[in-house]
């Protein structure tokens, strides 16, 4: 069963005054971020979007989350068109976006507060999540007292607290160092494998995509649309050891094969468009 169905989603952005961009040789002050994005996502699957910079992956995530409206086309969530943020979705940002004036525990409670969950219940849920991420001793810490990896664990816990059906993750590990990144990937997959949450995860890292995903959707250079969907045939439950297997390398090769041409194309385009900065 498909929980999310995107049909011919297009998104245009007006550039700031004085900026312009070349689209197929035509100079324009509009940019096509998404150009006919079709994607069906199964309930409970872990779908990873990879694609060159500026291919509209994050834009698509914002549309699914109801934070931004498509110029045309529609995204269905549980058969209903998305036109506003839904209680069924949770969001994890690249820069954590923890509230610095709240403790770890209180940050996790944030999403539950607007849902009318009583204080004792909120604390119970938040403590369970902290313990799941191995952060039980840090519940009274403020974000500035936590490392980047811990902060992102808290941010993921905050998103999971409302038990979303769909979790949208926009390059959540991009700001972390390589070791912390792998540890968090392992933790995320361990925790996710115990839930029935659908995840849409955006990343630039092919290794990350292959390790986490049921399916990797490769997005074309701008305007973004799905180029190819690659099934990752690695067994679950997965753990870190799988990264060194030959199956992992084979999957990695498949994804890179689909992605390479798009990355090159995107880089050519940036070179041709001196008036536009990312």
């Amino acid at each position: 069963m498909d929980i999310i169905v995107a049909k011919d989603v297009r998104k245009k952005f007006k550039l700031k005054h004085g900026q312009q961009v070349k689209n197929n040789g035509i100079i324009s002050n509009e940019i096509d971020a998404l150009g006919g994005f079709d994607l069906n996502i199964k309930k409970g699957e872990f779908l990873v979007l990879v694609g060159p910079s500026g291919s509209g992956k994050s834009v698509f995530l914002d549309i699914v989350g109801g934070l931004s409206a498509p110029t045309s086309g529609v995204v269905y969530l549980d058969n209903k068109p998305v036109d506003a943020p839904s209680e069924k979705t949770g969001y994890v940002f690249q820069q954590y976006a923890l509230f610095p004036w709240r403790t770890a525990l209180s940050n996790i409670e944030f999403g539950l507060e607007s849902r009318g969950v009583v204080k004792e219940e909120r604390i119970k849920i938040a403590r369970e999540l902290l313990s799941l991420f191995g952060l039980s001793d840090f519940e009274d810490r403020y974000p500035y007292q936590l490392s980047g990896g811990m902060q992102q664990r808290v941010a993921i816990a905050r998103a999971l607290a409302t038990k979303p059906e769909v979790l949208l993750m926009d390059e959540p590990f991009a700001a972390l160092d390589a070791q912390t990144r792998e540890i968090l990937q392992n933790e995320l997959i361990r925790i996710w494998e115990g839930t029935d949450t659908t995840v849409i995860f955006v990343t630039h890292s092919i290794d990350e995509a292959v390790f986490l995903a049921d399916r990797v959707a490769v997005v074309t250079a701008r305007p973004g649309k799905i180029k190819e969907i690659i099934e990752i045939d690695l067994p679950r439950p997965r753990n870190g050891d799988i990264r060194s297997s030959s199956e992992f390398a084979a999957n990695r090769h498949k994804v890179w094969g689909a992605l390479k041409a798009e990355v090159n194309k995107a880089q050519q385009e940036w070179k041709l468009a001196p008036g536009f900065t990312d």
């Binding site: 109801g66 934070l67 209680e87 949770g90 969001y91 940002f93 820069q95 999403g111």
Partner: peptide
Amino acid sequence: VPREYVELASVYGY
């Protein structure tokens, strides 16, 4: 106010 904070409030229906 960082955009993400406002988006979070909107995600959670504040």
